[in-house]
Design a protein around this nucleic acid. Structure first.
Lengths: 127, 127
DNA sequence: CTCCATAGTTTCTTTTTTGTAACTATATAT
DNA sequence: ATATATAGTTACAAAAAAGAAACTATGGAG
């Protein structure tokens, strides 16, 4: 993943190359709530390692799906947000999320919170 | 993949467990066109190996996403089609597909055919 | 009696992805 | 002089996914 090939037989395979894997969609799903710093993402994406987070963020940035803004301060401050391509993807992720939520309900699979369209706001309201 | 866990922090990770990986979505995308035999799927999913195809089909069946119908004849005849959960997923895949098609257009990535909602029909029209 | 077609298995290998842990840089505060 | 916070890197190891190739079963055709 992260490496976009020159051609695809099915556009779904391109989608998987761009946002497949264990973390990318979850990152984007979080970013739909607004702007987040690296450390905030790390805190909220439970279980992700520093290496994975940087790696996935970098690939998403390279693909033009998210925007990375570096502030030249010390200690470092870097903010992440959805680029246009990323925003356009949210409805698809939403559909996927609703499908699996419904699936989980049918099959008695537990979920904790998240996914239900709003998290704890912030960033949106500008805290 | 293929192994559904008892709980998920984000439903998108459940979706990835259910239909992530290199082939599952592509298989489902094909099956949206109707009923296919094993050998037909193998022919149309260019590059997939026999092992991969059976494995992915079996996992999708176990998840209740597709239906596998075995005809007790020789040589064997097995047909695959979307189960209800699979049909419900198609709109999400469609959204994903449109997103990546649009993305590919913006970034000059080539596609061959597929994805554009109809393939060559058949099975639907009942050939 | 041998071959064919279909839908698989099985074993082994390679590749990809993910994870762990330690290390870096630097302005500011103490 | 030393510790602190943030956003990383790097080298290595483990695990998971994918692929290759050969093998299986069986009724009917020739």
């Amino acid at each position: 993943m992260g490496i976009v090939k020159p051609a695809y037989p099915c556009m779904l395979t391109l989608a998987m190359d761009l946002v497949g894997g264990k973390w990318k969609m979850v990152i984007l799903w979080q970013l739909r709530n607004g702007i987040f710093r690296f450390s905030e993402l790390k805190r909220v994406l439970i279980g992700i390692t520093q290496k994975m987070l940087t790696q996935q963020l970098r690939e998403l940035e390279d693909a033009g799906i998210i925007i990375r803004t570096v502030y030249p301060v010390v200690p470092p401050k870097v903010e992440y947000s959805l680029a246009e391509e990323g925003k356009k993807l949210i409805p698809a992720l939403d559909a996927l999320c609703q499908w699996s939520t419904n699936y989980a309900a049918s099959y008695g699979i537990a979920q904790s919170t998240c996914c239900s369209a709003q998290q704890e706001e912030r960033s949106l309201t500008g805290v």
